[in-house]
Simulated assay, not measured.
Amino acid sequence: MKIAIIGAGAIGGYVGVKLALAGEDLTFIVRGANLRAIRSNGMKLIMQDGTEHVASNVKATDSYSEAGVQDLVILALKAHQLDAVADEVGKLVGPDTAIVTMQNGIPYWYFHKHGGELEGRQVQTVDPTGTLAGKIPVDQVIGCVVYPASELIAPGVVRHIEGDRFPLGELDGSVSERVTRIADCFTNAGFKAPVLDNIRSEIWLKLWGNLTFNPISALTHSTLVDICQFPLTRALAANMMTEAQTIANKLGIEFRVTLDKRIAGAEKVGKHKTSMLQDVEAGRESEVDALVGSVVELGRLTDTPTPHIDTAYALVKLLDRTVADEAGQVRLQKAA
């Protein structure tokens, strides 16, 4: 299969190496130091056990036109980075191209083929101008939930931390030939890629934790186990999750695990820094709109009060702006 991955970061690099080593015709759409490193040395993946794999047979370019039309396009950027590439994605897309979205949070396409009174509604928080829906063909999108954790430790080098599961699903819940073919491709590369008949339910299950633990960790500089074992933040997390569950239920989503079990699962992860905390420490823009702001928006659409989520959203938005205005980073350091 001819596959282009936009972005060769933690997830894009991990997925790309595995697909390339499985024999797929893979192109990374990437810029800067990553582009130079991949062109010179291929893309390297370091697994949990220390074994190293190098995909030297991949192509890397910063030109969408040069890459040309693909069988599959994987959007491996963060949600707030999609707008910057939306105008170019069409150069990779033909009438039969599938597009797999690997963003966390509520996706821009959420209400497409959703049914009901909200069918086709634009999610303003993640696509305020309608650019994404207008430029990235929604009818060609396959939903995906990303469970693995990995990190880009140097240009062209990704370290896998844990996980290998990428559930996939058509937006209308059908089990199509194309989603089956993509699932088979992922499975052949060593991933677990079940085809789900309700990808939105899986999105909410992951989001349930992300919308809660990410902002709390970014604001407190604490890890998952710290948040879960400190009574006040554990209670805050439970309140935020309860608000989110009410919204999801009104949208027809039922969670297959209990709230307490979801918190316990986060606690078991241990001393793990969430992606939002890592962004704050590195001085990068966070995914707060897709992870938290979108849920606030859906709360308004469903007439659901979200006081705890609203508060966390306001605080992280201000932190994001302060980091950007000061061109700085916020990190705990040992006192002298």
Score class of each variant (00 low, 15 high):
3 I>S: 03
3 I>Y: 06
4 A>I: 00
4 A>G: 07
5 I>A: 01
7 G>P: 02
7 G>R: 03
8 A>M: 06
8 A>R: 01
9 G>V: 07
15 V>E: 05
19 L>M: 07
22 A>E: 06
26 L>S: 12
28 F>E: 05
30 V>Y: 13
31 R>S: 11
38 I>Q: 03
39 R>D: 05
40 S>K: 10
41 N>Q: 09
44 K>H: 09
46 I>Q: 00
48 Q>T: 14
50 G>P: 06
53 H>F: 15
53 H>V: 08
53 H>P: 13
54 V>G: 04
55 A>Q: 02
56 S>Y: 00
57 N>I: 06
58 V>I: 05
62 D>F: 05
64 Y>G: 01
68 G>V: 03
69 V>W: 02
72 L>I: 06
77 L>P: 09
83 D>S: 13
84 A>G: 10
89 V>F: 09
96 D>R: 15
97 T>A: 04
99 I>S: 01
100 V>S: 00
101 T>S: 07
103 Q>C: 12
106 I>W: 02
107 P>A: 05
108 Y>N: 06
111 F>Y: 08
111 F>R: 01
112 H>E: 13
112 H>V: 12
113 K>G: 10
113 K>E: 10
114 H>R: 01
116 G>K: 01
117 E>G: 06
118 L>A: 08
118 L>T: 05
118 L>R: 11
119 E>K: 07
123 V>I: 15
126 V>Q: 02
128 P>D: 07
130 G>V: 04
132 L>Y: 09
133 A>N: 05
134 G>D: 10
134 G>M: 08
139 D>P: 03
139 D>H: 04
140 Q>L: 11
140 Q>T: 09
142 I>V: 08
143 G>A: 06
143 G>C: 11
145 V>F: 00
151 E>L: 14
154 A>W: 12
155 P>I: 08
156 G>S: 05
158 V>E: 02
160 H>E: 07
162 E>H: 08
162 E>M: 11
163 G>L: 04
164 D>I: 09
165 R>K: 14
168 L>S: 00
171 L>K: 00
175 V>H: 14
182 I>P: 01
183 A>N: 04
185 C>N: 12
188 N>A: 15
192 K>I: 15
202 E>N: 09
206 K>E: 00
211 L>A: 11
213 F>H: 00
218 A>I: 10
221 H>I: 13
227 I>H: 05
228 C>K: 04
233 T>I: 10
234 R>Y: 15
235 A>Y: 07
235 A>I: 11
236 L>Q: 14
240 M>Q: 13
240 M>R: 12
242 T>Y: 12
246 T>D: 11
248 A>Y: 07
258 T>D: 09
259 L>T: 10
261 K>F: 12
262 R>M: 13
263 I>G: 07
265 G>N: 12
265 G>I: 12
269 V>A: 12
272 H>T: 15
273 K>L: 14
275 S>C: 03
275 S>P: 07
276 M>K: 02
278 Q>W: 10
279 D>Q: 04
279 D>K: 02
280 V>C: 09
282 A>I: 03
286 S>F: 11
287 E>Y: 11
293 G>K: 01
295 V>M: 02
296 V>E: 01
298 L>V: 10
300 R>K: 14
301 L>V: 12
302 T>A: 09
303 D>V: 12
306 T>P: 15
309 I>D: 11
316 V>C: 14
320 D>M: 04
324 A>M: 07
328 G>M: 08
331 R>V: 14
332 L>A: 09
333 Q>N: 14
336 A>W: 11
